[in-house]
């Protein structure tokens, strides 16, 4: 177990410098798409905690993305706040709303929870669309500023991408730490069997709320980056379908697997861009690819790799067994006593 933890951490530390330097040659479109991938990975990471580790089926992550994005846009555009402050407040706000929404999660499970979160998503979308005095309504909010640091403009494609990357790194480390704290193990215990976890002294109420709220806070943080990334928001990216896509992202990547959200977000947000070259049929190809993927590997893409790895190690084991199998020549020399001891 502890070896696996270190592997995750190692991958994070190796990936960071590669991701820091690799996209430097990309033009603005490429940088935008890679930034979008990271932002959506953060949102998916949050949902992965609620769904993959705590086992709560939420259809509200798109709404939390929206809450974060709108809070950031309103604070920076209308109140003139600097982006970092708006980012923190947006994330905190999403956490609080997550706590409030988490209460129903204590009463209901499975598809009823999905339904309650679905209703929440619809309400958030309608508020964003109807309350024009606050959110700009259907016309949205434009000219959302990108950050500056000590007078240096971080608004250029590459600079902003690196800002997003640093935030992603920080949040990924937070998530890693969280999952390896006693909390993380409690989340998993709730998912495996809530009733049993309760009988073993896990405070299900508190942990369910916490899982929901932290997952929501990640959604809000992603939204707080999404707003300055696009520099314009209106309600459409936060409609119910956004929550469905995020759910798909987490499952396609591998629910409950640490890097699943990154792989899933690649599928959901980068693949359609890469497929643009195929013209009018690109969404059909995309849907077909997802369908085949989920059918081939219902545990997600990382599940596929795990299965391949299992397969490899089984083959290796088989090979070792085959090599170790006593042949006629040395079989006679095998000590029957040892065989007895081994079995």
């Amino acid at each position: 177990m502890s070896l696996k933890l270190n592997t995750d951490l190692l991958i994070i530390l190796i990936a960071f410098p590669i991701l820091w330097f690799a996209p430097a040659g990309l033009k603005s479109y490429g940088l935008y798409v890679v930034s979008l991938w990271l932002v959506m990975s953060i949102a998916a990471m949050g949902l992965n905690l609620t769904l993959g580790y705590a086992g709560l089926t939420s259809l509200a992550q798109g709404a939390f993305l929206g809450i974060g994005a709108y809070a950031t846009a309103i604070l920076t555009v209308k109140a003139g706040w600097p982006l970092p402050a708006a980012f923190l407040v947006s994330t905190g706000l999403s956490f609080l709303v997550g706590v409030v929404l988490g209460f129903p999660a204590l009463r209901v499970k499975h598809h009823y929870l999905a339904f309650v979160t679905l209703a929440f998503s619809v309400v958030v979308f309608l508020i964003a669309r109807n309350e024009q005095w606050l959110t700009g309504g259907v016309f949205g909010l434009a000219n959302i500023p990108r950050p500056t640091l000590f007078g240096t403009d971080l608004g250029g494609g590459l600079a902003f991408y690196r800002v997003v990357l640093v935030v992603t790194l920080a949040l990924t480390l937070v998530m890693w730490w969280l999952l390896h704290s006693p909390w993380g193990r409690a989340f998993q215990a709730i998912r495996e069997n809530g009733t049993r976890a309760a009988s073993l002294g896990v405070d299900i109420r508190a942990y369910t709320l916490l899982a929901f709220a932290i997952g929501s806070a990640f959604g809000g943080a992603a939204g707080a980056l999404y707003a300055p990334l696009v520099e314009f928001i209106d309600p459409s990216p936060f409609a119910l379908s956004a929550s469905f896509v995020l759910l798909l992202t987490v499952v396609a990547g591998g629910a409950g697997s640490f890097f699943g959200p990154f792989v899933g977000a690649f599928f959901s947000y980068m693949l359609p861009e890469l497929l643009r070259a195929t013209g009018g049929w690109y969404l059909i190809i995309y849907a077909a690819v997802v369908l085949v993927l989920v059918m081939v590997s219902p545990t997600g893409l990382l599940g596929l790799i795990d299965r391949w790895r299992d397969h490899q190690s089984q083959r290796k084991a088989a090979a070792i067994r085959a090599a170790a199998r006593p042949t006629l020549a040395n079989g006679a020399e095998t000590n029957p006593k040892e065989q007895g001891a081994a079995s």
Binding site: I18, A22, G25, L26, G30, V34, W37, L274
Partner: peptide, 10 residues
């Protein structure tokens, strides 16, 4: 995946 994406994008 990331590298492949970067290559494909460029």
């Amino acid at each position: 995946k990331t590298m492949a994406a970067a290559v494909a994008l460029s």
